[in-house]
Design a protein around this nucleic acid. Sequence first.
DNA 1: TAGACAGGAA
DNA 2: TGAAATCCTGTCTA
Length: 567
Amino acid sequence: MSLVNEVSTLSYRPDLPMIVQSDRTILLETQHPSYMEARQALHGFAELIKSPEYMHTYRITPLSLWNAAAGGMTHDQVLDTLSSYSKYGVPPTIVGEIAETMGRYGRIRLEKSGEDLVLTSRDPLILTELTSYKSIQQLLERPHENGYVIKNYARGLIKQELARLGNPVQDMAGYTEGEPCPVRLRETTTAGRPFALRPYQMEAVDAFYSGGSATGGSGVLVLPCGAGKTVIGLGALCQLQTATLILTTNTTSVRQWIAELMDKTDLDPSMIGEYTGDRKEVKPVTVATYQILTHRPSSEDEFPHMKLFSERDWGLIIYDEVHLLPAPVFRVTSGIQATRRLGLTATLVREDGREEDVFTLIGPKKYEVPWKAMEEQGWIAEAHCREIRLPFEPKWREAYARATARQKFRIAAENPRKLEVVRYLLERHPQDQVLIIGQYVDQLDQMAEALQLPLITGKVPESERQQLYEQFKQGKIKRLIVSKVANFAVDLPDANVAIQISGTFGSRQEEAQRLGRILRPKAEENKAHFYTLVTRDTREQEFSLHRQLFLVEQGYPYDIIEMETLV
DNA sequence: TAGACAGGAA
DNA sequence: TGAAATCCTGTCTA
């Protein structure tokens, strides 16, 4: 470390792409020849927070460092990466902070001692310091030769509280095995096609399980859309052979999990249960929605369906789309820390900032497949992202200027000139399957009317949706306009071009999901196009930048095109 | 007993 | 920052 220190203060290397600042942010030049390489290296322990055209800003946070540490990265590796790309070396204060922060991961542990759960540390002083907090004290039962025995219900609470105090706990107390459930992956699907986990899917399952019952067995796997999250869940289930509760976002997804369980495992259908508004089955493998868990007759009542967590001796709980996990489910999860937990997601970021709860209550990031790596291996299509900026007509510019902050975003989003650009793009892609995606139903209505194209919103009955999906899938329809239904519909057919005419305020995961819609590998030319239409110099442009962060972090550059250069 | 629909929730 | 979609439950109809 002292070596890094010396080098960093002595040298100036103008040929390198990065500046590490003492506020733990990093500036990265995007035009630099080693930009891609540096981006990839940074991705392991820093978070992208701004991505204007020439200079990206990353930030190193405690959470990003702990996730890196949980993945086996050392602070020397982090510092090596930083110093090997940094023009001015690494400020000495940062060197110290990174070592200190990463050192905190694993410094405090929970261990099992007979029936007791013991909070312990190699460093008795730190234990004394932390247990002097009232909030911690009230969770302790009594002293122990290695530390403190905690109250039996406090396993989750104490981890949350200590993480809040900046000290993540490494939970080594192990898990209950759960009710056994013999199950294996099949080698051929019901349709007779050979089936096996792809290499990265196997690695993901191993990463989740590795370390056995103490360290392994809880955590989050981060996989792009189309990477086969469900299949990886099945892999974990077959690895553990235990009663499993699978939680997901909506009923379509519940049915899809069940279909996959039937198709790709040797479980008898009588062993698989659906727990939704329609049915309340509790079987060795049960699939439920988050919504039924959080439903309550009135806001003063208890959550009657939360008892599902204790209705069977679950050995594994799978949280699908863990970035959407609702707050009450976090609370219950805090109380069931002895059960193995697997989180699946395409984006670890939550727009509500509860990443820390995911880290402490579900577990650290265990494995991540970068989108670009999937693209290189041909598992997903190669995508081109373009932002097209267009002007207002004077009349609209005026309305925008007069509008309140609230209305501004919507006025910019509904800029009628977007229609011209959509027309132009449709002409450019005569043979492609195109999805036009938007946020406001009024705007979509007008667009559908003007272009004479079919439109799907939440109002369209399920049967009609299925029909349109089917025609689109067969190529009988080549264009489809969709509202936010596109975010939820698992059964939305694949396209190879998406035109986003408006999006929500700045949701990174929505952007990722929409790009995911067009990333299924294509038979002929394995290429996909993602266009996003934005009114120039408005709030819409700001929010668009925020939405793009996640994809830029994954290595998708956005080409900026001015509308005037198109027509 | 199933399906349609309204109303509330997050 | 706001709009839209979804889900769950209860009630009504056939």
